[in-house]
């Protein structure tokens, strides 16, 4: 019985921790990050902690398994009578204390940079975000740069930002607390009603979709400009694969459309839809704070543009006088006019 049990213990420990932990190492698990300003700092902090924790994990769990095997009760074994050891206590208090305090100080710089070093208004683009059940509303300032003017651009669930430009988000919520989460950008900030939340980011990569393989790609600005990428004319579709609800996503030309606006080396031209190989693809904005029964489907889309495609999009928006959900924005202007300055 004892032997079976010992074997069971070792196998259990073996199965449960080590391969899984090794798996985590080899996967490098976090999503790719596309936020140039501080995404790498967060990922760096993550891996610093990961290595410290892994070493502590291996030492402590290893010692535990060693003790259980080496000192298991058997005929003639006598436990050593001791109440502890002053020096051991000092060592294992002081060393973790040093590591923890160092970690606290080390990460503070990153945190201060992310949350306190906001880019100045003349070097950044400000976008207002108004969350509601269950949609993201975005407002871009009019050409003179003021919010709350009659010719602002407002969109729903669609956000566009230029690559390599610092973007500041001014955000609040209309009804309940939501959370603006862009996983690829390492950005997460609650939208709390009655309160202005500010955060910022800077995207350095662009999303794109390969129509031939029907897979998403993440490209640098240079790679993106070397491809002919369609800016419109396509719809993102999916089919459900089975009872697990997993989906296969694909792009399809809009019904009846023959031509699409395609960007290549910063120039937009119209091309036949049949010849298009790549489509611009947004990153997703998720809601990360429970906000009601539609919480699981509160998806927004963040498109990263090159400066040229951003101009193309802005021009189109201004030309169409694109505005949605103005009732909601009137709430913002009535109750939170101070957020427009």
């Amino acid at each position: 019985m004892k032997k079976i049990l010992m074997a069971g213990l070792i196998v259990a420990l073996g199965i449960c921790f080590f391969p899984q932990h090794c798996l985590a190492l080899s996967f490098g698990y976090l999503l790719p990050n596309v936020n140039d300003a501080y995404g790498n700092m967060i990922d760096h902090m993550y891996s610093v902690i990961f290595w410290i924790v892994t070493i502590v994990f291996l030492i402590t769990e290893g010692f535990l398994v060693f003790c259980v095997i080496r000192y298991r009760s058997k005929e003639g074994r006598q436990a050593t009578y001791t109440h502890g050891n002053k020096y051991a206590e000092i060592i294992w208090t002081v060393i973790p204390a040093i590591i923890l305090i160092w970690l606290a100080i080390y990460q503070k710089q990153t945190w201060d940079f992310i949350r306190e070093d906001f880019p100045p208004p003349n070097k950044s683009l400000t976008v207002q975000v108004f969350a509601q059940q269950f949609a993201w509303n975005f407002r871009y300032a009019d050409p003179k740069g003021s919010f709350g003017a009659p010719d602002d651009i407002t969109t729903i669930d669609q956000m566009h930002v230029p690559v390599g430009k610092k973007v500041v988000i001014h955000m609040t919520s209309d009804d309940v607390i939501h959370d603006f989460f862009v996983p690829y950008a390492r950005l997460k900030q609650d939208a709390v009603p009655g309160m202005l939340s500010e955060s910022w980011f800077e995207m350095d990569k662009l999303g794109c979709w390969n129509l031939k393989s029907q897979t998403p790609m993440i490209l640098t600005r240079k790679q993106f400009e070397n491809l002919k990428v369609a800016l419109d004319g396509f719809l993102l579709m999916y089919k459900v694969l089975g009872v697990t609800g997993a989906r296969k996503y694909y792009y399809e030309p809009m019904p009846g459309k023959k031509f699409a606006d395609v960007i290549y080396h910063g120039k937009v031209s119209r091309e036949p839809i049949a010849q298009v190989q790549y489509v611009q693809h947004p990153f997703e904005i998720a809601c990360s704070q429970l906000c009601g029964i539609g919480h699981y489907r509160m998806v927004g889309y963040l498109t990263v543009d090159t400066p040229a495609s951003y101009r193309w999009w802005m021009k189109k928006m201004i030309k169409e006088k694109y505005q949605t959900n103005m009732r909601l924005w009137r709430v913002w202007d009535k109750y939170y006019p101070q957020y427009n300055n």
Binding site: K2, L5, M6, L9, T60, F63, L64, C67, V68, Y71, R72, S73, R77, Q78, A79, T80, T82, G84, N85, A88, E89, W92, T93, P96, A97, L100, I101, L103, A104, Q107, K108, W111
Partner: peptide
């Protein structure tokens, strides 16, 4: 709050080391 949270990890780790110290050179009945 981050500082205090980092600090509260310390007593927990001291406890873990002491449990391991208790197992060490014992006669462990499984």
């Amino acid at each position: 709050f981050m500082m205090t949270t980092m600090l509260i990890a310390l007593p927990s780790s001291v406890k873990v080391f002491n449990w391991l110290g208790t197992l060490w050179k014992g006669s462990i009945q499984l």
